[in-house]
Write a protein that binds this DNA or RNA. Sequence first.
RNA 1: GUCCCCAUCGUCUAGCCCGGUCAGGACGUCUCCCUUUCACGGAGAUAACCGGGGUUCGAAUCCCCGUGGGGACACCA
Length: 456
Amino acid sequence: MSQVRVRFAPSPTGFFHIGSARTALFNWLYARHTGGVFVLRIEDTDQARNSEEFLNVIYDSLTWLGMTWDEGPKVGGEYGPYRQSERAHIYKEYLQKLTDAGRTYEKDGAVWFKLIGERSEVFDEHRQKTVTKVAVAPSVIDDQIRGRVERIEDEDFVIFRSDGNPVFHFVNVVDDIAMKITHVIRGEDHLSNTSKHVELFKAFGAPMPKFAHIPLILKQNGPGKMSKRDQGALIEEYQKRGYLPEALVNFLSLLGWSPKDDREKMAIADIIALFDFPGINQSNARFDDKKLAHMNMAYLLELPADDFVARARVYFEKHNVTAPLAADAAYLREVLLISQPKIKSLEELPAYTAYFFTEDFAVDAKVRDKVMGKGDPKARLAELSETLVTSDFSSDTAIEEAIKALATAKGLGFGDYQSVARLAVSGTNVGPSITGMFRVLGRERVLARFARLASA
RNA sequence: GUCCCCAUCGUCUAGCCCGGUCAGGACGUCUCCCUUUCACGGAGAUAACCGGGGUUCGAAUCCCCGUGGGGACACCA
């Protein structure tokens, strides 16, 4: 058996979306699983709709997700060029082959692919026009996921437009032949097109690749498959929001594929080892942003400290959150490390840590009213100030012991001091552990903030 | 409308091929525990075999018919 060659063939006509990413991922996984070759081919024959911007989005998104291509734009390969807009001469050659075999004709300035069989004129109610039907045997697709599928392709179709450009069905098949693609893994929306492709492969006398039509991703709300316009559909969006690419890849791998045991969070090496056609489902999967968010949180919590700090810095840089970046690097690191176990996503970070980088932080009025309206918070603050002036600030446990000792001496609980102290220091009632906050902020700033609230 | 694909908790799914398990896991939701806020974590609860016929001692599992969902029917890809 020769080496597996798969391809991902996007067209740069819009932003890169979840469905495309999942198709790319399944191809990439299969290539890595089999030790095969992952080809990136750009299908940019529709010049009116293509743009360089979208092309770069494809490159960036694939790279971000870790799906490196073995052949394609930028990396080259022996079957290039890998952009269809640069392969016109190849299409002309292949067109000539079909013409020589008597399988083409011209009509209305376009070149049509001729099916073989008896012809008859039929009025199509749905399309409201007369079409020529050809009596043909069914095209048989031996699908790796769906089994044997038959479909009758009984109308000639255009392969070169009247403007001289070849159409998708033609270039897709020609390139799969020319690039020696062995497995065509693509969305189920192409299953109906496949009969056209099968007929073209046969007309060229080329070996048929194995087809594998994977289920579609359905939009979270409402009917239909996910499209670029749907909420949460764009890869770029997750990149911007600071999602971890490994979390997104893990989530995507589980949309339509299963390792068949109860594993969900898996290292990419394990996914590659387990991925194969029998594990791919036949039914469509609905996108679930909650599950993705959960997966992202799980990855975030397990991130090594240095990686977490690095990714947080990148997030701040991308979103122009300047205060943390202007701060001392060691200080920022401390702030981030006490925050890591608490947040679910990097995008929470700017708001979650804002008060570490300014004395002019926002105070939640509701929280303030609630905390200040109960018991004698100012007395607690005064007592705590007195204690902290001389207490050991070197570790969380030292601070904790000091506060506990104070509480015990006053016949109170830790919580009696915590709520007001947290309000004074952060202006809210959520955040990292209070002892960690104190240690990182330092005695001076903590006491100053106490004083400010006490005099308010 | 025609053709093609599909059908297990609200969602992602295991089980189906090779009929016999209280139909398992995860997300979500809810409850409790942990606790120094908020989270994390732990324990539990909730909740499904689309319907109808067959075949069989026995059907989520095999077959047929409905129904439902999805897709394709371009000189877009």
